[in-house]
Amino acid sequence: MNETLATVLVGIFGITGSLLLLSSALAMFRVRDSLSRINVFSPATGLGMPLIVVAAYVFDLHASGFDWVSLLMAVVAVLCLIIVSSVASNTLARSAVLSGQPVFRKTSPNRLAQPPVGAEDVEPGTDRP
């Protein structure tokens, strides 16, 4: 791989991933409730971190040449970041809602403000009426 091409690709992927992480971190200071913070952090872990892994792989590809183990490690790392990001965001959001964390009053649309349809007929602590 040409050195200029490798440097440009590493720079593009690395800087883009870093800017996504930085913008998500800065946005976390602006939001007011835990659900919004979880929502803001998802792009950083779902897109920013995989871009940094791709940048590291391109650098390794240029420095050491092609290696199946290195490619497999990069693919597994990207897939794990995407899967863990999705599962973690869902789990954190569910725990925040179930713990009774308040949602910021200006959050719009706020679908958590009203109970789900049919929830008034369900006994507390059960799934049946």
Rank of each mutant, 00 (worst) to 15 (best):
N2M: 06
I15M: 05
G17E: 00
I83N: 09
T4K: 02
F13Q: 01
V69Y: 03
V54D: 04
S95L: 15
L19W: 05
Q114T: 15
L9S: 10
M28K: 08
W68S: 11
A113V: 12
V87M: 10
L35P: 00
D60W: 08
S24R: 01
G11E: 07
T91E: 08
L47D: 04
L79W: 12
D67A: 14
D33R: 02
F104S: 12
V117M: 11
G100T: 10
N2R: 05
L72E: 04
N90K: 12
I38N: 15
L20F: 12
I12G: 00
V8E: 07
Q114M: 12
S64M: 08
N39E: 11
A56G: 09
L92D: 08
P124I: 11
S89H: 09
T7C: 04
L20T: 07
V31F: 07
E120F: 05
R94M: 15
G11P: 06
S108G: 04
G48I: 00
H62V: 02
T91V: 13
G125A: 04
P115N: 10
L81D: 05
T7A: 14
V54R: 00
L98H: 12
A56W: 01
V58E: 08
L112A: 09
R94F: 13
G14P: 03
L22E: 06
F29Y: 11
L98V: 11
S108H: 14
V75A: 14
L92N: 11
V8R: 05
A44M: 03
V97A: 15
L5H: 06
L19N: 01
S85V: 06
M49E: 05
A44T: 04
A55K: 04
A25T: 15
L47N: 03
S95H: 14
R30C: 07
I12L: 14
L79F: 14
V31H: 02
L51V: 05
G65E: 10
N90W: 10
S18T: 08
V103C: 13
G65R: 13
D127W: 10
R105S: 14
A55T: 03
R105F: 12
E123Q: 12
S89C: 13
I38P: 06
A44E: 05
R30I: 07
V54H: 02
D127Y: 09
N39V: 10
R32Q: 08
P102K: 13
T107R: 09
L20E: 03
I12Q: 02
R94C: 08
G14S: 03
Q114W: 10
L47H: 05
R32T: 03
R37C: 01
D67L: 05
L21T: 00
A44K: 03
R30P: 03
V40H: 00
P102T: 10
V103D: 11
P115C: 06
I83F: 15
